[in-house]
Computed example of a mutant assay.
Amino acid sequence: MRYQTFGRHSGLRVSEYVLGTANFGSAPAAAGLEGSRAIFESFVGAGGTTIDVSNIYQDGEAETVLGDLLGRERDDYVVITKYTGSRSAQVRPGTTGNSRKTMIRSLEESLRRLRTDYVDVFMPHFPDGVTPLPEILAGFEDLIRAGKIRYGGVSNFPAWRVAGAAVRSELSGHRPLVGIQTEYSLAERSAERELLPMAQAHGLGVVLYSPLAGGLLTGKYRHGEQGRLSARAAADGTAGEGGEQRTAVLDAVLAVADEIGTGPVQVALAWLRQRAARAQTSMIPIVGPRTPAHLAGYLDALNVELDAHHYQLLDEVSAIRLGAPHEDVAGALAHGVDGDRSLLDDPLIPVI
Rank of each mutant, 00 (worst) to 15 (best):
E34T: 14
L69D: 01
K148G: 03
R145G: 14
E316N: 15
A22M: 15
L333Y: 13
P158N: 04
L186A: 06
H326C: 03
P211H: 04
V207D: 10
P289Y: 10
L322F: 05
R113V: 13
G164S: 08
V317S: 04
Q226F: 09
A248G: 08
G35S: 05
I56A: 02
R74G: 11
D52E: 11
A257G: 13
G85W: 13
R341I: 15
L217E: 02
L66Q: 01
H125G: 05
L254N: 12
F157H: 08
R92W: 10
Y77K: 08
E305V: 14
L322I: 04
G139N: 00
M123W: 05
S42C: 10
D315E: 14
R246E: 09
H202C: 10
V304K: 00
A30L: 06
K101Y: 11
V53C: 13
R2F: 14
L343D: 10
G139S: 01
T50P: 01
H125A: 12
L333K: 08
G288V: 03
G240A: 10
I320T: 08
I352E: 12
S36D: 01
S185K: 00
N55Y: 05
D345L: 14
V18L: 15
R278D: 14
G261W: 07
S88V: 09
Q266A: 06
V256M: 05
I39M: 03
L66V: 05
S26G: 03
Y298C: 12
D142Q: 11
Y77D: 07
T182S: 10
P292L: 01
Y83P: 03
D307V: 13
N23Y: 09
L107F: 07
P347G: 09
L186K: 04
S106V: 08
I56P: 00
F122S: 01
I136W: 01
T238F: 07
A29H: 15
R278V: 07
R228Q: 14
Q90G: 11
Q266N: 04
Y83M: 07
E188T: 12
T131R: 02
R2E: 14
I260R: 05
P134N: 11
Y17G: 02
L313N: 05
R100M: 03
I51Q: 00
L204A: 06
Y151W: 11
I56L: 04
V206E: 03
A165F: 05
A62I: 04
R161P: 03
T84S: 14
L302M: 02
E241Q: 13
Q90W: 09
K148P: 02
L107N: 02
G48S: 04
L186G: 03
G35Y: 00
R150K: 12
T102C: 13
F6P: 11
E109V: 13
D307M: 14
Y77H: 15
P347I: 12
G227P: 13
T218C: 05
G263H: 07
A308E: 14
E41D: 15
D120Y: 07
V44R: 13
T182Q: 08
V65S: 00
Q245L: 09
F43D: 00
T291I: 08
F6D: 10
D59A: 13
T96I: 15
I349C: 09
G203H: 07
V154W: 01
Q274N: 12
N303H: 14
S99Y: 08
G237V: 07
L306N: 01
A146H: 08
V337F: 12
G336L: 04
D251H: 08
A89I: 10
A330T: 11
D338Q: 13
G263C: 06
T49Q: 12
L254R: 11
Y311I: 02
